[in-house]
Design a protein around this nucleic acid. Structure first.
Length: 843
RNA sequence: GGGCGCUUAGCUCAGCUGGUAGAGCGCAUCCCUUACACGGAUGAUGUCGUAGGUUCGAUCCCUACAGCGCCCACCA
């Protein structure tokens, strides 16, 4: 069957994409080959958190990795491109609570865990379906789940090992607490939110002196007040230092202490210290050995010591307290603080303001190793490099050790037990894992009473930070030896302080090594017009966000919806157009442009292949025309740039180079140049063109394959597959480049003259406002001596292009009239028969 | 307040190791040329944020400043 018949006139992405996805996934094309002799390139794919549906931002950043994986595979690597689901821990619990309209602590723990598992399964299918619809080349069949027994085993091993090495300890101290989620959490999970507040000025009486006026935004904590602070240099209050102040309403006495941390010019210059209103309170509490007065419970209700506020929620308690104080004339003044100038730390998962509760928690010590961690970070190649600063900045500013216990239900259990008096701790040994301490008893007898199981679970990140170990199947029977460090970690920049940081911490503590050689950071997709929205929110509580969030933006950026409007290849090409690590604006226009490209590639391929007559690709054909040598030489140059860019993970630069070559060199020039040869060329010339088209087009397919796997596979299968034997384009190695031959170098120079002359002809036709096929009587080209020699090589092309009856190539100085071209040493004059010129209004 | 990034054509952005600027969209004029009108040709539009410095020469290097964005700290 001829190409004309077998190659459809129009490209139908919807059908074609579905067709190849089916073939790829059914044949296991992208399955990881455990026994391959090729060098391994391993990717530490982010297992998406099961916390809701994925949005276009996920598609964007995951696509970058997917493109890199295909490139590496076609560069001859045995690519390990796994897939996983982070389906344990708080995010999945919150999703489950939302889906079922329940709260975890109100439901049977076992039952709740089952619901979470179900939720995880449901979303895993949604996730993998989406990635398959985008043609991702992950090994979906061996996808891991972070709640699976083997992941739990590895996660618990990590716990046990860190404990053994002394990096992990259980401490009873103030920890970041979320009263809504009823759990502690880590510094990395704090998110700043602008929130309006109010200073309340309250007088504390001091014997023999005027009352001390405290300014506070948290009057509901008055009962938890343990001291009052002033600045040592503040002359107004020097006489108060060392005296006792009486807390209004509750009437207990607290010391007045001088400390540099109290700011003279803030509020009234007098600040109360409560246990705990903020992190400074903790600092003072420790420094001055102050007593502990707890006013807030685990669930955010006021405690007994708050008297009339008991059982109220924090915000309600605040209002009530102000009322009570006002009744007693104890509010001297209130000052509103607008949201723009006040920032409150919240729990990023739910937006609840941070509280501090004293509970026994497990901490991984990170603060004492800041310098070493920064050093380890520098051994990793950061792409782009400036993202390393964000990591270092975070480590430098760490002020809390990593709290990893969560007072929740669904997660990896903490493999530890405590004696009834709390004096003894028993941590499981590595060979017993995985285990749930609530179901298993230690073999060792408890020195005092019975062992009590740790009822908490591990922070989600405590498990996801060992994905390199999960990928290496560490400690499992089928362990992948020599798998660490992995080749590359891809991720977005928002989780540098969590996922990247924690993974580096763990790898360093366990093995004194880096988790991966390279880290590749991608940006976010921002919603258009987000800045405007931000400023319009002035005066209200707001989180300054241009990032697309699934909770706030709903379906607008749902990938499924976008895929109804654009093909997968187009979405991929659009994603590939962004600079490494840079945020981009969501842009459907860009996807439409990508669709134009697909159309162009289709038509160019179809047309070029249709010309083949009596051509046998595998028979070596001599290349005889300069244009052919030229396009081949250009291709070599492009491949070289392409590879340099790709190896630096600059996938968009590789694409820009490729696009330029395809549109400007191949379509606009080369194909146009050879058209005439198809009709009037000699046999050898035709074959030279066929061979060149075959080679260049095939190379183009291979080079575009990582970006647009569907259309390139389709074109490959329609024609090239019959000669190339490979079952898929995606298993073929990418074209290699080599130094230019002497002939190719000469062809580059010669063809530049042709291009200049052709542009002259185009200018001529355009200025005369005539169609391309309107014949010229004469085409006169003036050029330099060198140019004349070069141009003489292309007479048939020039003649065909201008449809000129007479072609003259001569010395440039003899050509008076004519059009300047792209170069000074080529000038073109086109003589058109007046009959062909359009009758235009002379005005 | 600390750190990082950005500031280039009306819009979105590209410009690797310094030599008087590019793409796409948009705009104007033309062309349905036997691959593609989801196309092609031609063209207009930029003192490359501001001010200094290094240099024979800077959009690209250095310094300062400004605006914008992000990360972090600030939370009485």
């Amino acid at each position: 069957m001829s190409i004309e018949n077998s190659f459809p006139k129009r490209y139908e992405p919807a059908e074609v994409e579905k067709k190849w996805q089916k073939v790829w996934y059914e044949s296991g094309l992208y399955r990881f080959d455990e026994k391959s002799s090729k060098p391994t390139y391993s990717i530490d794919t982010p297992p998406p958190t099961v916390s809701g549906r994925l949005h276009i931002g996920h598609v964007f950043s995951y696509t970058h990795t997917e493109i890199i994986s295909r490139y590496k595979r076609m560069q001859g690597f045995n690519v390990y491109y796994p897939f996983g689901y982070d389906d344990n821990g708080l995010p999945t619990e919150l999703l489950t609570e939302k889906e079922h309209g329940i709260r975890s602590h109100q439901v049977d723990r076992k039952k709740f865990r089952e619901l979470c598992l179900e939720t995880g399964k449901k979303y895993s299918v949604l996730f993998s379906d989406l990635w398959k619809r985008l043609g991702f080349s992950c090994d979906f069949e061996s996808a891991y789940s972070t709640i699976s027994p083997s992941s739990q085993k590895i996660s618990q091993w990590s716990f046990v090992d860190l404990h053994k090495k002394g990096f992990l300890e259980r401490r009873k101290e103030p920890a970041l607490w979320c009263t809504k989620c009823a759990t502690s959490f880590a510094q990395a999970e704090i998110e700043d939110v602008n929130k309006a507040g109010m200073y309340v000025h309250i007088p504390f009486t001091v014997d023999g002196l005027a009352p001390l006026v405290v300014a506070t935004t948290r009057p509901e904590l008055l009962s938890a007040c343990v001291s009052v602070f002033v600045h040592p240099d503040d002359d107004r209050f020097k006489s108060y230092i060392g005296k006792k102040a009486k807390v209004p309403f509750y009437e207990h006495l607290v010391p007045v202490i001088a400390d540099d941390k109290a700011q003279i010019d803030k509020g009234t210059g007098v600040v109360m210290c409560c246990t705990f209103g903020d992190s400074t309170d903790i600092l003072w509490w420790r420094k001055y050995q102050l007593p502990l007065r707890e006013a807030i419970s685990k669930f955010g209700k006021m405690t007994d010591i708050t008297g009339p506020l008991k059982d109220l929620k924090i915000e309600d308690a605040r209002k009530k307290m102000i009322e009570l104080l006002k009744e007693k004339n104890l509010v001297l003044k209130t000052i509103d603080i607008p949201a723009e100038t006040r920032v409150v730390n919240t729990h990023e998962r739910c937006g609840t303001p941070v509280e501090f509760l004293v509970q026994p928690q497990w901490f991984i010590k990170v603060c004492e190793n800041k310098e070493k961690l920064i050093e380890v970070g520098r051994k990793i190649k950061w792409n782009p490099d400036f993202m390393r600063h964000r990591f270092e900045n975070w480590v430098e500013n760490l002020s809390w050790d990593w709290a990893i216990s969560r007072q929740r239900s669904f997660g990896v259990p903490i493999p530890a037990w405590y004696s009834e008096d709390g004096k003894h701790i028993h941590v499981a040994s590595a060979d017993e894992l995985p285990l749930d301490p609530t179901e298993t008893k230690p073999k060792v007898k408890c020195p005092s009473g019975e062992w009590i199981a740790d009822n908490d679970v591990l922070d989600t990140w405590a498990t996801s930070s060992v994905t390199p170990l999960i990928n290496a199947r560490f400690t499992l029977p089928n362990e992948r030896k020599n798998f660490l460090p992995m080749s590359m970690r891809p991720q977005a920049h928002d989780i540098i302080r969590t996922w990247a940081f924690y993974s580096i911490v763990k790898s360093f503590y366990h093995f004194k090594n880096i988790p991966w050689n390279d880290i590749v950071i991608s940006g976010h997709v921002k919603k258009p017009g987000a800045q405007v929205q931000g400023s319009q929110m002035a005066g209200q509580d707001f989180a300054k966000k241009t990032k697309i969030s699934k909770s706030k933006d709903g379906d607008t950026f749902a990938p499924e919806k976008i895929m109804e409007r654009h093909s997968s290849d187009a979405i991929r090409l659009w994603s590939a157009g962004a600079s490494l690590g840079i945020d981009v604006m969501f842009d459907e226009n860009g996807m439409a442009e990508a669709e134009k490209f697909l159309n162009k590639l289709w038509n160019a391929s179809r047309f070029a292949l249709m010309q083949f007559e009596g051509f046998e690709p595998k028979v070596k054909t001599p290349i005889v025309n300069s244009e052919d040598l030229w396009i081949r030489a250009r291709l070599k140059q492009v491949i070289s740039h392409y590879q340099t860019s790709f190896n630096a993970y600059e996938i968009h630069l590789a694409k820009v180079e490729l696009d330029k070559f395809f549109w400007m060199n191949f379509c606009d020039n080369y194909i146009e140049f050879v058209k005439c040869r198809f009709q009037t060329g000699s046999d050898a010339e035709k074959k030279s063109a066929y061979q060149t088209i075959y080679d260049v087009l095939f190379s183009l397919l291979k080079l575009y394959a990582p970006y647009a796997p569907h259309i390139t596979e389709e074109i490959y299968q329609l024609y090239f597959a019959q000669f190339e034997k490979s079952e898929s384009l995606h298993l073929i190695e990418q074209p290699k480049t080599s130094d230019l031959t002497k002939e190719e170098e000469k062809a580059l120079i010669d063809t530049e003259f042709l291009i200049a002359a052709i542009s002259g002809v185009r200018i001529g036709k355009s200025k005369n406002q005539i169609g391309f096929k309107v014949p010229a009587e004469e085409l006169i080209i003036g050029s330099s001596e060198e140019g004349i020699k070069s141009l003489n090589l292309f007479k048939p092309v020039l003649q065909n292009f201008s449809s000129a009856t007479l072609l003259v190539i001569g010395n440039i100085s003899s050509l008076k009239d004519g059009w300047e071209t792209s170069r000074e040493d080529v000038k073109v004059f086109l003589k058109i028969n007046p009959e062909h010129l359009k009758k235009r209004d002379p005005a």
